[in-house]
Write a protein that binds this DNA or RNA. Structure first.
Lengths: 156, 156
DNA sequence: CGAATGTCAGATAAACTGATATGT
DNA sequence: CACATATCAGTTTATCTGACATTC
């Protein structure tokens, strides 16, 4: 039983701390977005479409780390409320490039205003250099785990 | 429109990086735990009960950052598979202190073995000091956001 | 009583897999 | 054909809120 040797208490575990931070952030965002009638994935999608307009559903899905089906769910919700628009007829291939409507831009601006205090608060105790370092750490983790996933896939 | 002034691309956003890292970790863990018939919350619960046995459902829920209802769901699943046990009759008050069964300990050991490569891989590029610093950052974020939530509550 | 706890029931959020169709 | 894309349908995971009972 060698587990005993490397066992660390939960409060020392990066995975545990990561989950707590994400849960806290998600709850705070969801609470602030609810009055606007937006969920967290819907807001993320608006942000993504704003920053990278005219992308296909598949491209957006990759950008948000979800399946095309999940992204399509989110897009349909936003489209039915006329916050984003896609041509009825595909432009090229089957792709229907998405962009924000005027209402979508206004809603995104409201969402950013609602979320600004949260981001500010979240990072309150961290200096600019700390934030940069934190980003480096998080990207390192994500990269390493993605390679891990690729290995798992190819192993099957 | 002052949003333009502080608008940062998604790839500079801590929230975005946090979500990606958590998603990647969750996927990797879920994939490794599936052959054991465990979900991520189930594993987390086993770990928590192992490290803090004889706690009430409410205490465990606070430790895992979820509602007592959610925790009870997880516990019932584990109990029906006889991985944890609770006295049928409350010990004191209504609390039924939970502990691992022998089977639960064995299953937890298997889960740890299955997850060890993931944690190792996740932190591969980080030194011990980096891990410590990352924990500091994550705790800072969590703390700041929890205070934020309290303010939101009291504001209502 | 008031506060904490346990738990049933139903709702919601957010993702997934599978299947199918279409365009290059 | 192989491949990427879109999307329908159903399912799964993980959480929540509300209501109610119980015990100190």
């Amino acid at each position: 039983m060698r587990q005993g040797a490397r066992l660390q208490p939960l409060n020392r575990s990066v995975g545990y701390a990561l989950k707590q931070a994400t849960t806290a952030l998600h709850n705070a965002m969801a609470t602030s977005l609810r009055p606007l009638g937006l969920t967290v994935p819907q807001y993320s999608c608006l942000e993504l479409v704003s920053q990278k307009p005219e992308q296909s559903n598949a491209q957006l899905a990759r950008g948000m780390f979800v399946t095309p089906q999940s992204m399509n769910d989110v897009l349909r919700g936003l489209q039915s409320r006329e916050l984003v628009e896609r041509p009825d007829e595909p432009a090229v291939g089957r792709a229907r490039p998405t962009k924000l409507t005027a209402a979508g831009q206004a809603q995104l601006a409201r969402a950013r205003d609602a979320l600004a205090p949260i981001e500010q608060r979240m990072l309150a105790k961290l200096g600019v250099a700390d934030q940069e370092q934190l980003l480096v750490y998080l990207r390192s983790i994500t990269d390493s785990l993605e390679h891990c996933a690729e290995d798992a896939d190819s192993a099957v």
